[in-house]
Design a protein around this nucleic acid. Sequence first.
DNA 1: CTGTTAGCGCTTTCAC
DNA 2: GTGAAAGCGCTAACAG
Lengths: 336, 336
Amino acid sequence: MAVTLRDVARAADVSVATASRALAGSSLINHVTQRHVVQVAAALGYRTNTFARALKTKSSRLVGLTVHNLDNASFQVLASVVQARVQAAGYQVILSISGDDAAQEKEILRTLVDHGVDGLIAVPTGANGAQLLAMEHAEIPVICAVRRVEGASLESVLAGDLDGAYNGTRHLLGLGHRRIGLIVGPGETTSGKERLAGYRRALQEAGLPIDPALVQTGRYLPATGVAAANALLSLPEPPTALFVANHESSVGVLRVIAERGISVPQDLSLLFYEDSPWFEWQRPAISVVDSGAAEMANLAVDRLMQRLGGVANSGREYRVGSRLIERASCLNLSNP
Amino acid sequence: MAVTLRDVARAADVSVATASRALAGSSLINHVTQRHVVQVAAALGYRTNTFARALKTKSSRLVGLTVHNLDNASFQVLASVVQARVQAAGYQVILSISGDDAAQEKEILRTLVDHGVDGLIAVPTGANGAQLLAMEHAEIPVICAVRRVEGASLESVLAGDLDGAYNGTRHLLGLGHRRIGLIVGPGETTSGKERLAGYRRALQEAGLPIDPALVQTGRYLPATGVAAANALLSLPEPPTALFVANHESSVGVLRVIAERGISVPQDLSLLFYEDSPWFEWQRPAISVVDSGAAEMANLAVDRLMQRLGGVANSGREYRVGSRLIERASCLNLSNP
DNA sequence: CTGTTAGCGCTTTCAC
DNA sequence: GTGAAAGCGCTAACAG
């Protein structure tokens, strides 16, 4: 059997309570006693029993993290960053993958609560707002990341998608492009909606008409990129630039371009969304609107730690600004 | 406060002990009572308190998972598969990222034990064998995945790297290639060592000399691919095929090829190692030796579940055979 | 500042 | 079959 607090107390010749206080770093304790107990505990190799503590305090030092998958670069970054930061703060993360499925998410949340997570960082499906709110009610802070839950007053850390798409489009516009193809996610998703809106706004501000044929909407899949790029490039008057604001479809777009023997940026300019190591290493290196996954992750952890420290739910939405990273895939039409 | 076993017992008009037995599905209990209790519990929305249970039983229904990072495709797959399977079996996974750092791993293992994980699937750094063995001693089954710990009798699920590299090289040989460049990981790593051995064996069996200039060793990084590919392609008599058995360096190789304007497979054949969605979508689609990350993950979970079910440590090493996936990046020199 | 004490909610002997 | 009761190891009043 492992060494318990009792053993430490006995060895240090104090009561269990004192030992507990010493180890917890309570303020009401003699410094000398404290040092002594800590020393004895270390010598004995004492490790506090997390179950007993949790049973008493209702705090597990566990933090839940749910993401849709680990294929998406942003979610990978989110998982890595959250794991590292949370661990550094003395917590552990329970990772769950929802598959963007509401039913699975429901079950996951339930289990996470069973395991007494102290807090949760979630990329929500959007369908389980009530349950998430119930967690908040049960004093378990919830921070939404990347996606938000409509109508629930949960703290959310989101990307600046509207501005990102707006700035990306303006970049292309500034380079002299007038026909800009957009490949974007479904209109039901926040990011799909916002990125489309950003694109439109930039075009409208430039006094350009919005040609519906230039906008391709589709699921977050490589195949979407294939279909969309083919459709766009087969247009009677094809675009001079493609703004691929649907990250998962990027790889499909790349394939179509290779298959058609199109050279970038001479024949076609390319601007992607959400950076990935692959984009930088591609030749030509691909310019992107970086949505700041690492920054979102960090901010989400910051918020969670605040909340864990007793700060009340602000119900507020935080936005991490996107950033344009110019590489070599966009041609300047103005001064060739 | 949540509803406890006591509440259920009271509502069902039985003792706490009976309620516990009913919910645990104990054999010595009246079927009728059992059904009744289960019903009442469900009606009350009872959820068993995992801390109290764990305090009593020493079992947390938590499984630890440590990987080096989440950038590597194999580790992503490992994490996804383990998470899904373990969850389906009624456990949760605590994810930890070691950064392939021995000190960090040490701390992680300690914390995982503190949290009372029932088992562990680890991609070990190789340096903490004693600690891992201590976990086994403490009845916590440990399954090593992808990497092994030298000299520790831990169950390990590994890739068939020697055979994989051997078969990959033979494939190229069969296509008529005689000068095959190899880009591989450091000789200190098991996979680096084994893949090199497989390459050599295939060459030797074919009665071909091993030209040291054709073998490029380096760390698992994109930059390795850049340096190695440049070195190989600048040779007076450059190779006709590149076998990139250092996954992380693949992207660097791709870049060099694009920069040099080399066309694949006409000018150069390409064979990569460890599949990634990117390889399939690349044009030409890249042939790979797939090391079977998903299969390793599944096997590791299978083994862990067995062990959790009481099966003793076999101390055995399991190998998942690699598989050659032919796509379009290797030219047949024999009948052009 | 320190010790005594009462549980947290559950499982599990041990009687009946 | 079922119930009573004894803790698992810890924290947090409450006294002193």
